[in-house]
């Protein structure tokens, strides 16, 4: 009975995210269009796009077609597994089966899929794309890890339900370290979701979508889907870590309130993306470096209980 509930709740999480992720993308595109004085596509356009791509011929291309296929399935699989771990307006379904370490692993795996995709294409542009992606990952992963470590320190646990519930504030007060990390994660959020000004690894006008250069049809659809889900995942994580208030409301209010918060983050991402130019990789790296320095200070502060 217990197992069945867990499976059903995990499935529910997956289905909800699969259904909602393109909608958030649609909101993002629509709001971007409004900022640009355009009407923009219908809200449901991302669904149509995915369906259209899924219906196209599946072309094998690039240096290593099987790796290309593997990378895209792995990407979608890893982000969906992450979804099973997340408390999406309700307690995390796989609370007992995994902890923060697993979460970090899975998120890294999703990033590695991009590298695999780029390697599979084997073109100069995709290789430049993955070298940029790799640099970005190395700078960003620690930021996220530090946030989780601070949270874990505060609650003295690696359990998902305890850490992913405003743990950076150490239950109640507003310690300095939590507030610093809030600022750091806000400033780097755009990079986690790979949007302008930090869409450097894809940079359409420079390296023509980098790692995705050889993707088309159904495989491209799955990759795009994984990217849309990533936006939801990171927004949910941010909400769970930093904006926990109201999560204890009774169903369905807590659940709805959670998605309103996620929508708020997506809107923030949209506005930032629409008002910035893309940075160069060296400029971005300097920026991440600065944030990383600040994050370490926060970690030390948290260690002393501030």
């Amino acid at each position: 009975m217990e197992t069945l509930t867990v499976i059903l709740r995990a499935l529910a999480n997956v289905v909800v995210v699969l259904l909602l992720a393109p909608l958030f993308e649609g909101v993002l595109r629509r709001v971007t269009a409004r900022i640009q004085s355009r009407q923009g596509p219908p809200l449901l356009q991302p669904y149509y796009d995915l369906l259209k791509l899924l219906g196209k011929e599946d072309i094998e291309s690039g240096e290593s077609p099987w790796m290309q296929r593997f990378a895209v399935h792995l990407a979608l699989a890893s982000v969906l597994t992450v979804v099973c771990l997340l408390p999406l307006g309700a307690p995390s379904p796989l609370n007992a089966a995994g902890d923060m370490i697993l979460l970090i692993y899975l998120l890294t795996l999703a990033g590695i899929c991009t590298l695999l995709a780029g390697l599979a294409a084997g073109s100069t542009y995709s290789l430049i794309g993955i070298s940029r992606e790799m640099i970005t990952m190395m700078a960003l992963e620690p930021l996220f890890a530090i946030t989780l470590v601070i949270g874990a320190l505060n609650v003295n646990s690696l359990r998902l339900d305890q850490v992913l519930d405003g743990s950076v504030y150490a239950g109640g007060g507003f310690p300095l370290s939590g507030l610093i990390m809030l600022a750091v994660m806000l400033l780097s959020f755009q990079a986690f979701v790979q949007r302008v000004p930090f869409d450097i690894a894809e940079a359409e006008t420079e390296i023509m979508e980098g790692p995705l250069i050889e993707y088309s049809g159904p495989k491209l659809a799955l990759f795009k889907y994984a990217q849309m889900i990533k936006l939801v995942i990171y927004s949910s994580l941010f909400v769970a870590l930093f904006i926990p208030w109201g999560s204890a409301l009774v169903f369905p209010f807590g659940w709805l309130w959670f998605w309103v918060k996620v929508l708020g983050l997506v809107l923030l991402v949209t506005v930032v993306a629409a008002t910035h130019a893309r940075y160069r990789i060296d400029q971005a790296l300097n920026y991440y470096g600065g944030l990383l320095g600040v994050a370490f200070v926060a970690l030390i502060l948290a260690g002393f209980g501030y």
């Binding site: 971007t32 640009q36 302008v196 000004p197 869409d199 629409a274 008002t275 130019a277």
Partner: peptide, 16 residues
Amino acid sequence: ACHIVGFDTMFMQAFR
């Protein structure tokens, strides 16, 4: 030029 550096909002506004 703004489009090239990824600043598409300015691109759209300039064209408008």
